[in-house]
Simulated scan of single mutants.
Amino acid sequence: MSFFNFSVKLFYRAKKSILLAVFISIFGFIFFTIIPSWSANMGQGYEQLTNKSRKMIQSYRKALIGNLMPKNNSTYNQRNTECDSSIDWDMLLDDITVTGAQLVQYFMWTNHSSCHLSHDFGGEMGFNPSGLAGQKAVCIDPKIAPKPGKCIVYSFGIDNEWSFDEKMSRYGCEVFAFDPSMGMDHHDHIPGNVHFYNWGLGDRDEIDHHNNWTYRSLSSIYDELSHRHGRKIIDYLKIDIEYSEWLALPEVIESGMLSYVRQLGMEIHLDIYASLKVHVYWAKLLRTIEKMGMVRFDSEYNPWSVGNFTKFPLAGSLGYEIAWYNSNLSHVIMP
């Protein structure tokens, strides 16, 4: 390469560097001198925005942040609670600062991974939104599944809707159904191997004279029906009794009847007029059975029953279908 050609190339390279330096200098002048002055003027202009404009900007900001942040406390974030198995629920429920949103997070905790295969039995099609309502999840894992031809089911709360009972009968279980509100006497329901009793589930044996309904505890009913099915395990206990679950559940725990229940499917109901303290107590009842060996494997919120709570800030579902299996009553699987 000649000295002349080398000099020309060096000149063009230097020219590019000079242009780049000039460009950087101009950009720096604009960024550090003009923009701050312009921003200050804009800041003064922002102060003159109408309240409506400010609220619009704030709402967009909140929406953006809401989409970016994980929604751990969202009332309807039911599927994200699968990862919440790491949460210490006892510590959460004992915390005096626990919120309504955190309580809902506990109720909606699904823990699906604890059962590899579960089926929904029964239910009716609901609308607005469309979907199945009243179904009960049954774990079909071999160590937990009801054994067709050998299983018994207790079903509390029928309300003339027999789909769960009939499906469990078709599955191969003998079903004992209970409901005092239907105005029916004891009888065998057709179709299926379903025996109906006009008893309600309570914490003791008593008569509601106002409605002329008979309530009985689970232990009392089991003792009386043992002459029909023996002292067998209740393979599935369904409880859907419109708030009375909170009255009956302590008796189920204290009487020792939980040790006779292989799977439990229960619709729990929250009360918009009850205090946060009452709801914490209800949540602790569920934690009690879980610490006794009942393993949660499903939870679904009820989208047709929603409301605004009056004693603490929360709006959301008032009903949750939760299902557990008893880890102390696994079947022995033969090799």
Rank of each mutant, 00 (worst) to 15 (best):
I96Y: 12
I96N: 09
M56E: 10
L93Y: 04
L93Q: 06
R13M: 09
N67M: 15
W109A: 10
H116F: 02
F27S: 01
L68D: 03
S53Y: 03
A21H: 00
N111T: 07
L117H: 09
P36E: 07
F121L: 02
A14F: 05
N67I: 13
S114Q: 13
R79C: 09
C83E: 12
D141C: 04
G66C: 00
S130E: 13
S39I: 12
T97W: 11
K55M: 13
A63M: 11
L49M: 12
T97Y: 14
S113K: 09
D141P: 00
D88R: 05
L93E: 08
K71D: 15
D90I: 03
Y76S: 11
N41Q: 13
L64A: 04
G100D: 10
T81R: 15
A14H: 02
D94L: 06
V104Q: 13
P70Q: 00
I26G: 01
T33Q: 11
G43R: 05
M69T: 15
P70G: 00
K16E: 01
Q135Y: 04
V22C: 00
Y12I: 06
I87G: 02
T97D: 15
K62C: 10
I65S: 10
R79S: 14
A101I: 07
L68R: 08
C83K: 10
S113P: 14
Q44K: 07
G126H: 07
T99G: 11
D94C: 05
M91N: 05
Y12M: 06
K62N: 15
N73A: 13
V98G: 10
G43A: 06
R61W: 13
G126M: 04
V98C: 12
M108D: 15
M42S: 03
Q105P: 12
I18V: 04
S53G: 03
P142M: 03
A63Q: 13
L92S: 12
L103D: 07
D88K: 04
S130W: 08
V138W: 05
E82L: 10
S85W: 14
S37H: 09
G126T: 04
P36Y: 01
N73I: 10
D120S: 14
I34E: 11
K15D: 01
T97S: 14
I144W: 02
Y106F: 15
S17G: 06
L92T: 14
K55D: 13
G28W: 03
M125P: 02
L20V: 04
K71I: 09
D90N: 03
I24Y: 01
I87V: 15
H119T: 02
L92N: 08
G45I: 07
D90P: 02
S85Q: 08
P70L: 01
T97K: 11
N72G: 01
M42W: 04
P129C: 04
T75H: 14
I24D: 00
N128A: 07
W109S: 14
Y60R: 06
R13Q: 07
Q78S: 14
D95V: 08
D94S: 07
F121C: 01
S59F: 09
S17A: 11
Q44S: 08
D95H: 05
C83W: 10
Y60F: 07
I26P: 01
I140Y: 09
G126I: 01
L117I: 02
G122S: 02
N111L: 07
G122A: 02
S114T: 13
M108V: 12
I65C: 08
A40S: 11
T99Q: 15
L92C: 10
